[in-house]
């Protein structure tokens, strides 16, 4: 019989409900896009006018500089804090714990405003030895500009989070790795730099990418102390022309662009630090 000679095709099950709900979601999405695109209050022409405006681009560059600089500082302090936090010395341990407790516990905005107003606490900062007539102090307001206050606030806050991420990464490296390195005569420093940290990176990079994006957006809080980044630039413009919505769209577009680039960078880094680990690059796939 013909039916027996032909092997039946194996078909996936039908999902009528799933298909129907996908259609509803699609319809809602289309309606939203149509409404936004046609809404005259969105003032798309204003968006186009300002998207590449020099003031906006200047703010954008500041946002990127601030994010990268603060992240770099936070990673360095984070590594130091993580190593201190794993120390057997109780002083180092408690200082690291105390730092994380404080800088993670106080809201970022409060910290930023605090640094900006540091002069109210110490009008002058530096070394003075009155009997010798030595006065190497400077006015706090000259030293802590809004940019410096922004860097301090963002970096020190971020460092507390990075410390925990780095610590998790270090703990994630098998203790056998440390023992193997030790048995070969490596010093603690070599062990950390050449064996443990490179492996911890695999665990550290994904959440760090997350923190980077979160920090990028958190820089907008700096507008509170006129930090000069993208959000400050946008505020400056709309406080003059009152085109609040289109300018917020300009800012949103740029934040999304940079976030997208950062996500790409994260994917690249994850591949790099995942070398040799089967989860990132399957050895069976390489064998061929």
């Amino acid at each position: 019989m013909a039916l027996q000679s032909v092997a039946p095709k194996l078909l996936p099950p039908r999902h009528p409900l799933r298909t129907a709900s996908a259609c509803v979601v699609l319809a809602l999405l289309a309606a939203l896009v149509a409404s936004l695109a046609s809404n005259p209050n969105m003032q798309w022409s204003v968006v186009a006018d300002y998207l590449f405006g020099s003031q906006i681009l200047y703010g954008l560059v500041n946002t990127i500089v601030l994010t990268v600089l603060c992240m770099a500082i936070a990673i360095v302090i984070g590594i130091v804090l993580a190593i201190m936090g794993m120390s057997r010395n109780p002083v180092l341990y408690f200082v690291a714990q105390g730092y994380i407790w404080f800088f993670r516990g106080v809201p970022l905005l409060v910290q930023l405003v605090f640094w900006f107003n540091l002069a109210l606490l110490w009008p002058r900062i530096g070394l003075t030895v009155p009997p010798l007539g030595i006065d190497l102090s400077v006015s706090t307001n000259d030293l802590i500009t809004s940019f410096v206050a922004s860097v301090l606030g963002l970096a020190l806050h971020e460092a507390a989070y990075m410390a925990e991420i780095v610590r998790a990464g270090l703990l994630g490296v098998d203790s056998g790795q440390t023992e193997a390195g030790r048995s070969l005569g490596m010093s603690d420093n070599q062990l950390m730099r050449r064996i443990v940290l490179p492996q911890a990176m695999r665990i550290i990079v994904p959440p760090t990418g997350n923190q980077f994006i979160s920090l990028l957006k958190a820089t907008s809080l700096v507008a509170f102390i006129a930090g000069g980044e993208l959000m400050t630039a946008v505020q400056n413009v709309y406080s003059h022309n009152f085109r609040v919505i289109p300018l917020l769209i300009v800012a949103s577009i740029w934040y999304l662009v940079v976030t997208t680039l950062a996500t790409g960078l994260q994917t690249y880094l994850e591949r790099r630090v995942g070398k040799g680990f089967s989860t990132a690059a399957s050895p069976s796939a390489q064998r061929g």
């Binding site: 098998d174 056998g176 790795q177 023992e179 193997a180 390195g181 030790r182 048995s183 070969l184 005569g185 490596m186 010093s187 603690d188 064996i195 490179p198 492996q199 695999r202 630090v273 070398k275 040799g276 680990f277």
Partner: peptide
């Protein structure tokens, strides 16, 4: 720890679970 490291450098150890460095060839 530096002097202990120098002593360890003179003897080898092979572990039950190999403990090769996975990030290196």
């Amino acid at each position: 720890s530096k002097r202990i490291a120098a002593q360890r450098a003179k003897m080898g150890m092979v572990f039950q679970r190999f403990n090769l460095f996975p990030h290196l060839t």
